[in-house]
Design a protein around this nucleic acid. Structure first.
Lengths: 92, 92
DNA sequence: TTCTTGGTTATCATATATGATAACTCTAGT
DNA sequence: ACTAGAGTTATCATATATGATAACCAAGAA
């Protein structure tokens, strides 16, 4: 909640955003989604249009501990101009 | 269908399987799932047990053009001993 | 042949993701 | 103060993923 809010504000600083965008690390799912949209420089509404849905659903996807389907993840990524694949690494 | 069948037979050859397991390329979703289970050396039933579900559902997941949720993908990967993350690469 | 094992398919019930709409907050400008 | 833009939240309807069970196929071994 307040973490999201903080991130939101922080990312408004263009320099900070640039740095943030460089980090390609292992984030949780939501962070990965936010990062894609951030890099694309799109609003939720713009992503929604490209996904043929509504902005409220994008908000839900990005906030409410999401459990989206693979096709939804693909649509979102494509809307943000990304190709998506799974990365599996052996646990040990 | 027959592709799956072919793959199935081919992968019974241990040498071929070893080679197949080395390839970490951009597969479609289903191939990535099959590869994980193949590397783990588990049967559908074993994966099903670890995921607390039934083997028929695993088969459906691996065959019927799947659109699983993120949590299902995670469960499957964990059952096979893998950690999972998204890999997004910019389209151009 | 018969049995076992791994995988497939069909089906139904249930849980949950998604679509759609509306009302709301917050912030930045003007 | 007012407005506009971006995001949030609540809610309902509907589509679809998932769980569960049973019957089936194919291949290999005894």
């Amino acid at each position: 909640m307040s973490l999201q809010r903080l991130k939101q504000r922080v990312l408004k600083n263009p320099e900070v955003k640039a740095e943030y965008d460089k980090l390609e690390d292992e984030f949780n799912l939501i962070d990965q989604l936010l990062t894609m949209r951030s890099k694309a420089g799109l609003t939720q509404e713009q992503v929604a249009e490209r996904m043929q849905t509504n902005k409220s659903n994008i908000s839900r996807l990005e906030r409410g501990n999401a459990n989206p389907s693979w096709s939804t993840l693909l649509k979102y990524a494509h809307a943000c101009g990304f190709e998506l694949s799974l990365q599996a690494q052996k646990m040990h």
